[in-house]
Design a protein around this nucleic acid. Structure first.
Ligand SMILES: [Zn+2]
Ligand SMILES: [Zn+2]
Ligand SMILES: [Zn+2]
Ligand SMILES: [Zn+2]
Lengths: 166, 166
DNA sequence: CTCCTTAATGTTATATGATAACGATACCGC
DNA sequence: GCGGTATCGTTATCATATAACATTAAGGAG
């Protein structure tokens, strides 16, 4: 039986997630060095905490964790780090959840889009130039100049759907 | 010169907006009668206030207006009305703005999608089976079962883009 | 190395968005 | 009219996010 191709973020099979985290931090270091941005200790730690799993993370959960570690942190501490990471394109905000997730995608030409499982909570950033193209076409027809997209598809990932059927 | 086809919601030309409001309320009455739902005074008034213009409306702005009219209204008053209207499909939530907008679309087969102008603030619900189809395809390939979509495209409407260029 | 400017962080307070819980009313079928 | 259920009123509280200003750290010019 052939399994459908699926994003590692949505897969329920074990994967080397430590590698996900390490890769993300390596990429972040490289990107910041390259652009002259400063990935300070707090910013780096927030990014690392966000990458702790493939589920969107809430700002106040980050705050609680940072506080457990260093005792001093107020909301602005976390929100400023989040703003930096958002601006740098290292994370995205999941608007439908007021939560944040790491980005492992090259956004040269495509905009962020997510499949989000309502059962396991995992969110996978998908790359589909088709979706971008269709939206670009629709926008073109309407004379609308696209600046930013929020595309969040909620539902059941393959594994959770299979589990429900059994 | 040919104007691009555009949604009345994004058009800056005057239109009979009283008719927009009247239509929306008429449709709401019909739909609720048909389904045995009760469009009570508060719910109807909240819907009417949301339709006051083609820009997403914030819950606490609704609250302030209701309060100005009847003096007694707490957040639950408005949020309960909003929940009802959302469930009935009479309004949608614009997740990226924590705001609400009226729906004038038949959602038999297509999911809500919006173009939102960052300059004039108008939001237009667009109907594009193409976008739904492409997303359905992508989901199919990933074995993902789609439940609900959040599609919000931010940018400049034709009129605002033209104004900026001049 | 020191001074200076700017970026980043600490700190307090507050704004904004949403829900829990429970009692009081209003509606509807019988 | 009676009784059950949906709606609404009311109070309190939780959750999300930012304003404002003081303090500290980083990095460049001389
Ligand atoms: Zn992983
Ligand atoms: Zn991304
Ligand atoms: Zn109108
Ligand atoms: Zn709609």
């Amino acid at each position: 039986m052939v399994q459908p191709a699926t994003n590692v973020a949505l897969s329920h099979s074990a994967h080397d997630h430590d590698a996900c985290i390490a890769d993300a931090l390596t990429r972040a270091d490289a990107l910041c060095r390259q652009r002259g941005l400063r990935l300070t200790a707090i910013r780096r730690r927030v990014l690392e905490l966000i990458w702790a799993n493939h589920q969107p993370t809430k700002a106040y959960d980050l705050l609680a964790q940072i506080n457990a570690e260093r005792g001093n942190a107020a909301p602005p501490t976390v929100y400023r780090a989040l703003d930096f990471l958002l601006d740098a394109g290292l994370i995205h905000k999941i608007e439908s959840q007021n939560a944040f997730i790491g980005c492992a995608v090259d956004h040269d030409r495509n905009q962020p889009k997510f499949f989000i499982c309502r059962t396991c909570g995992r969110a996978a950033e998908i790359q589909s130039s088709q979706i971008d193209d269709v939206i670009a076409n629709e926008a073109e027809e309407a004379g609308f100049v696209v600046d930013h997209q929020t595309i969040e598809v909620d539902g059941l990932c393959a594994a959770c759907a299979a589990a429900l059927k059994s």
